[in-house]
Design a protein around this nucleic acid. Structure first.
Length: 232
DNA sequence: AAAGTTCCCAACCGCAGGCCC
DNA sequence: AGGGCCTGCGGTTGGGAACTT
């Protein structure tokens, strides 16, 4: 189908944003909220296309952005999530509060990729570079049942089964609360709300420690191994 | 100190998918 | 049911900063 351009290119600015443009965008979103990106530039008096405004807001101007260097724990979490999800940067970013998909993608390409290579691990497959097999100390198996079927693939947006088997993982040693034996199943909204709240508070609401499944927000009651059994 | 090279990250581009009419 | 619009995503690029020669 014919796709119309997202904006009138001839009358839009490109490249780096100025302070004034930032101020205008922030002021407009504070007053009217996010959304309607296509009409936002005109309404806010910006000579930018909607996509550019959205990107600028999400990646740079949002007040909840963390910014600053990634911590070692974030590094390992990104590596773990990437081994599970691949280049699904938005999903990975969703598990790292205050980080954006673009930021994580850049960080992966500039730092983590190199870090894994120096460990002798292929950053794409997460397997040992030397012999093509899984690295000696880390075995990750991800199984999407009937992933070849397009129909089934769609269903996976609702129901994804991931079986991970990790033995003697160094990550687990560093992060002893990570339960790496997990499955992903249809989300239960109630559980997600509970766990998302826990994510926000860092689990300080209660006395429990979140298992890896819950940290991902993709847990189900069967495989959630939180100490207080919140899945029930 | 200057020139050349590499690194990093903000921003852009094109595509896919969901939604609405 | 299907076409068009809008949003979001992932890959790529451009240019400034940092580093090296």
């Amino acid at each position: 189908m014919g796709r119309s351009p997202c904006c009138e290119k001839a009358h839009t600015n490109k490249g780096a944003w100025t302070k004034e443009e930032d101020d205008r965008l922030v002021a407009y979103i504070r007053a009217h909220g996010e959304g309607c990106w296509r009409s936002l530039p005109k309404a806010a008096g910006l000579l930018r296309c909607g996509k550019s405004c959205r990107l600028r807001w999400i990646n740079y101007l949002r007040p909840d952005l963390k910014r600053g260097n990634f911590t070692e724990e974030e590094d390992e979490l990104i590596i773990k999530l990437h081994s599970l999800l691949g280049n699904k940067w938005s999903l990975i970013a969703g598990r790292l509060p205050g980080r954006t998909d673009n930021e994580i993608k850049n960080y992966w390409n500039t730092h983590i990729r190199r870090k894994l290579l120096s460990r002798g691990i292929d950053p794409t497959t997460h397997r040992s570079i030397n012999d093509g097999t899984a690295s000696q100390d880390q075995v990750t198996t991800i199984s999407f049942s009937n992933a070849n079927s397009k129909e089934e693939d769609t269903k996976h947006k609702v129901a994804v089964d991931i079986m991970i088997k990790e033995e003697n993982s160094p990550v687990q040693e560093r992060c002893p609360d990570l339960n790496l034996d997990l499955k992903i199943s249809p989300p239960c909204q109630q559980q997600i709300n509970y766990h998302q709240e826990n994510l926000k508070t860092g689990g300080r609401n209660g006395s429990s420690t979140l298992c890896f499944v819950c940290r991902l927000g993709i847990q189900n009651s069967k495989d959630c191994s939180c100490s207080d059994g919140v899945g029930n």
